[in-house]
């Protein structure tokens, strides 16, 4: 089975992240950039499928030059090859445009299955898998906590707030995963050394037959019109137990929808 895994480089969610003050895009220059965490689960799932059934795993990344670092790291986990779409005109693209670039890139590859994280920790838009599946004309199996491949059919357990749904599709599909699906491996030294020699194909918009004026911040369908830093954390509610403390705690949890 030929699997393509979408990998996005994002600013480290464990560090301070900022938006640029002029156009409200993510300031990637000042941040320490890493593989989007959820994508590591997609890579792991792809590798497990390959280990069980054979096949090939290719990483597909749309991002600036600096994303090479994340591509190498992804490859050191075990995938066979990578495709890096890099073009200055793409900067600031929204999800609609990015999904078009991804679909065009997938058009240059042979694939049976596309795996990706259910969200990226920077934009958290969560719609790329759906948009991409629509553009590719294949089913979207999104939000998986479990994926089973049986011959031509792909079945997922879709994680929901209440439990899970079983969703099945046959043939080609786009599957997005949550971090409940597996435990990603850490790159071994052998994997790190091997990653050096793995092919990384670089593609531009021209290579994909896409016009520069269809992508980028200026041509985006959506725009961030304003942004404000998260307000400082408010003081919490103090419950004094005068015999009713337990009830008040449960009420609080219920209001916050924890129970």
């Amino acid at each position: 089975m030929k699997i393509v895994v979408l990998v996005k480089q994002v600013p480290d969610s464990g560090a301070e992240r900022t938006l640029k003050s002029d156009d409200f895009t993510v300031d990637r220059g000042s941040a320490s950039n890493v593989i989007n965490e959820m994508d590591e689960y997609a890579i792991e799932e792809a590798l497990r499928i390959k280990e069980a059934q054979g096949g090939e795993v290719t990483i597909l990344t749309v991002g600036p030059d600096g994303a090479t670092e994340s591509i190498r790291k992804a490859l050191s986990m075990g995938p066979d090859a990578a495709v890096h779409v890099v073009d200055g005109a793409i900067a600031g693209s929204d999800a609609v445009q990015t999904s078009a670039v991804l679909a065009a890139a997938l058009g240059t590859l042979e694939w049976d299955l596309v795996l990706c994280g259910a969200e990226a920790t920077d934009g958290r838009v969560q719609v790329i898998p759906h948009m991409l599946a629509e553009r590719l004309g294949v089913p979207a199996l999104t939000g998986a906590r479990k994926l089973t491949i049986d011959g031509d059919s792909r079945t997922i357990e879709r994680q929901t707030d209440e439990g899970y749904e079983v969703v099945r599709a046959d043939g080609k599909a786009v599957v997005s995963v949550w971090d409940t699906i597996n435990e990603p491996r850490y790159p071994s030294f052998k994997g790190i050394m091997a990653a050096k020699k793995k092919p990384v194909t670089t593609l531009s918009l021209a290579d994909l037959g896409l016009a520069p004026d269809t992508v980028g911040l200026a041509n985006a369908y959506s725009a961030v019109v304003s942004a404000a830093p998260r307000p400082a954390r408010q003081a919490g509610t103090r419950v004094t137990d005068e015999g009713e403390g337990g009830v008040q705690l449960v009420e609080f949890l219920a209001v916050e929808k924890f129970v």
Partner: peptide, 26 residues
């Protein structure tokens, strides 16, 4: 177990014996 899975115990040994092909410095 997980240290084993990521190859740490095989770091300085050759791939012919199941190692990672690294060296003592690794």
């Amino acid at each position: 177990k997980r240290m084993g899975e990521m190859g740490l115990f095989g770091l300085p040994f050759g791939e012919d014996v199941g190692g990672m092909g690294g060296d003592y410095f690794a």
